[in-house]
C-alpha cells in the first residue's frame, strides 16, 4: 500500500515537473522576424545604394573556369527616380535603365527592371550574371553582396554565383574607375583595315602561367549579314557601336602543318576585342564553339587595346583584383 502511494506521488511529481518545465512559447509565428530583418536590410541597402557619389563596381567574371580575367562594371543608382546608370569597358557612353527593389525570397531583391547591360549579358549565359533579379544577401560600408536569383536554366537549382558590388570611391576600386575613365580611343580594329586579310602572330604573356600563349590569327570582315549578327549577339544588341568581325584562329601551338583554323565571330569596339559565345546564331562553329575554343586557349574572353599601329595591336587584360594579368601583341 505504502509503496503504491510512493509510486503515485512520484508520478504526480513527474507531471508537475513535466508541465512546469514547458516554456510558454514567445516565438512569433506570423513572420514578423523576417519582416523586420528584410526591413533592416532594405533600409541599409537603400542608404548604401544612394549614399555614394561614385557608385558601385561589379566585377563580371566568366562562368568558364578557364577564364582568368574579369571586367569591371560601374553602376550608379538613383533611388529617387529608380534609374541606374551603367558604365562598362564596351563603350564610353553611359547607359541608363531602371531598377526596382522588392522583397522576394525573405531577402530584398534588386531587379534591373528594363533593358540593360545586365539583362542582355544574362541572355548570353556565359558570365556569372545568370539573372537580372539579384537577391541582396549582405550590406556593409564598402560592399553589397548579391546573388542572381536563378542560374538561367529551369533544370538547375536556384541561386547563381555569389557576387559583390564594391564601393567605387574606396581605395580598393580606384583602378576600376581609372580603367573605365581611361581617356580616348586606343584604336578600333573594325576601322583599321590595314590589319585585315593578313597572317598575324599572337604572343601573349600571362602572369599566372610560365609558358607564353602563342598562336596565329587573321582578321576578316563579315559579308552582308552584319545586321543579323549584330541583332542576335547580346553585346552588340546592348552597344550598337560595337561591330562583329570574323577571325581565323588556331588553338594549338606549335601549329601543325595541315592545321585548319577556326572561324570565330569576334566583337570589336573602341579599345577592345571581345568573344561572346551565343546559341542564337548558326553555324555553331562560328558563334559558339569557335569563341569558346578561343576563350579556353587565351584564358580570357576579352583583350583591351593599349595601342595600335598599321601592322600590330598591343593588348592587355586584368584580373578580378585589377592586376594586369595578360599582356602581349597581335601582329608583326
Amino acid at each position: 500500500m505504502k509503496r503504491k502511494n510512493i509510486l503515485l506521488g512520484a508520478f504526480a511529481l513527474l507531471l508537475v515537473l513535466g508541465f512546469g518545465s514547458c516554456q510558454k512559447s514567445d516565438l512569433p509565428l506570423d513572420g514578423t522576424v523576417s519582416k523586420e530583418r528584410i526591413a533592416a536590410l532594405q533600409s541599409n541597402l537603400k542608404k548604401a545604394l544612394h549614399d555614394t557619389t561614385q557608385g558601385w563596381v561589379m566585377m563580371v567574371q566568366g562562368l568558364n573556369a578557364n577564364v582568368r580575367t574579369a571586367m569591371p562594371v560601374l553602376l550608379k543608382f538613383d533611388t529617387l527616380t529608380g534609374d541606374v546608370t551603367t558604365r562598362t569597358l564596351f563603350s564610353k557612353d553611359k547607359q541608363s535603365s531602371k531598377f526596382v527593389l522588392s522583397a522576394s525570397t525573405g531577402v530584398p531583391l534588386l531587379s534591373f527592371s528594363t533593358f540593360s547591360y545586365i539583362s542582355q549579358t544574362y541572355t548570353a549565359a556565359n558570365t556569372a550574371i545568370t539573372d537580372f533579379f539579384f537577391k541582396v544577401l549582405d550590406v556593409t560600408a564598402d560592399s553589397i553582396t548579391i546573388q542572381p536569383f536563378r542560374k538561367g536554366n529551369i533544370y538547375q537549382s536556384e541561386g547563381g554565383a555569389i557576387m559583390k558590388l564594391f564601393r567605387a570611391s574606396s581605395d580598393k576600386m580606384k583602378w576600376a574607375l581609372d580603367l573605365l575613365n581611361a581617356p580616348g580611343n586606343t584604336g578600333n580594329i573594325f576601322t583599321q583595315t590595314s590589319l585585315f586579310g593578313r597572317d598575324l602572330e599572337v604572343r601573349l604573356k600571362a602572369s599566372f602561367a610560365t609558358d607564353s600563349i602563342r598562336s596565329r590569327t587573321g582578321f576578316y570582315s563579315w559579308g552582308g549579314s552584319l545586321n543579323v549578327v549584330k541583332s542576335n549577339t547580346p553585346i552588340t544588341r546592348t552597344y550598337p557601336t560595337l561591330n562583329p568581325i570574323v577571325i581565323e584562329f588556331y588553338t594549338t601551338f606549335p601549329i601543325p602543318a595541315n592545321a585548319v583554323p577556326l572561324d570565330v565571330n569576334t566583337v570589336v569596339g573602341d579599345g577592345l576585342i571581345y568573344w561572346q559565345p551565343t546559341t542564337a546564331l548558326t553555324p555553331a562553329d562560328y558563334f559558339l564553339n569557335g569563341p569558346n575554343a578561343t576563350i579556353n586557349f587565351l584564358k580570357t574572353d576579352y583583350l583591351l587595346i593599349k595601342s595600335m599601329t598599321a601592322n600590330s595591336v598591343e593588348v592587355y587584360a586584368v584580373d578580378a583584383s585589377g592586376n594586369v594579368c595578360i599582356t602581349g601583341r597581335i601582329g608583326d
Binding site: G31, T32, K35, T79, S102
Partner: peptide
C-alpha cells in the same frame, strides 16, 4: 506579412 511587397519609393515617371 507580404513577403513579396515592392518598395515603391521612386517618383512616378
Amino acid at each position: 506579412v507580404d513577403y513579396l511587397e515592392e518598395i515603391k519609393s521612386t517618383v512616378k515617371n
